[in-house]
Amino acid sequence: MASLGLITIAATPVVAQGLDYRSPDAAPPAWGQFAKLVKYRFEEWIGADEAVANRFRGWLKETGGTANGAPDSLIVKAWLNPDGSVEKVSSAPLNDERANSDLRTVLTRGNIGEAPPPEMLQPINLRFSLKIAKD
């Protein structure tokens, strides 16, 4: 879990069931390790001290706990290229188009730093808990 100023973001891998579903217990250990690395990178990028990430965290802080604001949690699906760059991400839409755009921008402009393991199923599904941290 990363504390990002007043925002706490925790991400855990989530498995989406489908034709290529593999339970976490049956998945190769390298897949779980890589998912943890993706989670770590996403947390770093969301917590970065730069304009888009700061604006996204500001929106979370302003709207968290309100009826039309940030949800308590969000599942982000990520597709990665063989070089470790993020090809695309998707999630349920937030109630603010700028926040949607900011989140996509932050999560797609970086490189994880490693290639996905061979034959790893994609997308990688991560659940983020978006909550205001207590001081």
Rank of each mutant, 00 (worst) to 15 (best):
P118E: 12
P24N: 01
S91G: 03
S101N: 10
A70S: 12
D83I: 08
P82L: 13
S129L: 15
D96R: 05
N95H: 09
N125C: 13
G113V: 05
Y40C: 00
R109Q: 13
T12P: 01
L103H: 07
V38I: 10
D83W: 10
D72E: 12
R57K: 12
G113H: 09
T63S: 14
I132H: 09
I132L: 15
G47S: 09
S85A: 08
G64P: 00
T12Y: 06
T108P: 08
A48Y: 02
A99S: 09
D49F: 02
D25Q: 14
E87M: 09
P116D: 12
E50D: 13
G69P: 13
E44N: 13
A78V: 15
G84M: 10
W59C: 05
A92Y: 04
N100P: 13
G58P: 01
P24W: 09
R104T: 13
E87Q: 13
R104V: 13
E43R: 03
V52W: 04
L74I: 04
A48G: 08
R55T: 11
G32F: 01
G65V: 08
K39P: 00
R57N: 06
R22F: 03
A35S: 11
L126N: 03
R109W: 04
Y40R: 08
I132G: 03
L103R: 04
L4C: 14
I9M: 12
P93T: 12
E114S: 11
V14R: 11
L94A: 11
L60V: 15
E62I: 03
P117G: 02
L60W: 08
V76W: 07
N100V: 10
G84P: 08
A133M: 05
A78D: 04
G47W: 07
N111M: 08
N111I: 06
K39T: 07
A53D: 03
V106L: 05
W31C: 06
L4P: 03
V52Q: 10
V76N: 04
S23I: 09
L130M: 11
P123C: 02
A30P: 08
A51K: 14
T63Q: 08
S129M: 12
L74K: 01
K131D: 13
E87A: 14
Q33F: 00
I124D: 00
M120I: 11
R104F: 05
D135L: 15
S90V: 05
A92H: 11
D102H: 09
Q122T: 06
A51Y: 10
A48I: 01
Q33I: 00
D135Y: 05
A70R: 02
K131T: 15
A115T: 14
K134R: 14
I132S: 08
T12W: 05
P13M: 03
A11P: 02
A35G: 07
A70D: 06
L94W: 09
F42K: 02
N54K: 12
D96H: 11
E97M: 10
A16D: 06
G58W: 02
V86C: 02
K131W: 05
T108E: 11
G64H: 14
D20I: 07
N95M: 03
E50H: 10
K36R: 14
S91L: 01
R127V: 03
S23A: 15
F128T: 02
I9S: 05
D135A: 15
V86I: 13
E97F: 07
